[in-house]
Design a protein around this nucleic acid. Sequence first.
DNA 1: AGTATTTGACCGAT
DNA 2: ATCGGTCAAATACT
Length: 284
Amino acid sequence: MSFRDEESLRPPGWSAAVKDLAHGRDSVAKLASLLQLCSPENQWPGTATAALLVEEIMGSITKAMAALDAGNVMAANQMDSPSSCVTSNKQSAGVKRKTQGTRTAVYRKRGNPYSWTRITSATIDDQHTWRKYGQKEIYSATYPRSYFRCTHKYSQGCRASKQVQRSEEDPALFVITYFGEHTCADTTKTPLASLREPCIISFESTNGGNREKENPSSLQPLKQESEEEAVSNISSADSQHMGAEIAGGYNESASGLHSFFNYGTDVVNFEDLLSFDLTEFLQD
DNA sequence: AGTATTTGACCGAT
DNA sequence: ATCGGTCAAATACT
């Protein structure tokens, strides 16, 4: 589909809305930069709250832009015939595997700006059920990355997914990157909404980042949702130990539970997180 | 038996 | 050519 075709599908004011959101995003980025200037000595009591609010605003903008984009994609899909899900030429020539649909849309995830990252040292309950569909050794990364999709991807067409990877700086931490919004019926809380639980945003590096306990009620009881098992192949013995340790640690003390956003340079660059490619967004 | 996970292969993006 | 995201058969688990 050409850019012009997509443009004609957009509702009136679509571009203006995107531009306004982009402006808001820039403003939030500036505010985040100001907050970053607050050293531990000169922080005022509302620093943490302000940081949380900044993150929430950013999340809202992210979701709004994602929603606009999703609507655009839906419109685009409606223009495509069902036969667009065809086997690639290579595939039909190969015959090694069953046919797979085109992955044109799938690969948009690489560099996808509509994502948010969470770092946690324990299993957390984001109120969604996930199913692991892959694990990959990542070049220049010590630990493998695990891939999860929403359990209701096929039953309800939920497009949410997440990636879990052990932190390079602190192997006890897990970096969880969420993609897409849950549209499934069992959604009771979005990952961002869950951040309304006691939680802190850190604008510092991982090593020096502020951490705060997450609501213990958010622990995930389901095996399939445990992040420590998500990277189980790092070392099965280690992960088993870890799983027991986390479970036991929680019962005895919640001190081991930390959940925070980190937009520091070591893990997630805040600018990167906010760096929608507006040009691409408008033309994609 | 049904469901979830593991893991090698496939293939688009860079 | 390489990397990384996804698929799907095989396997494990309940």
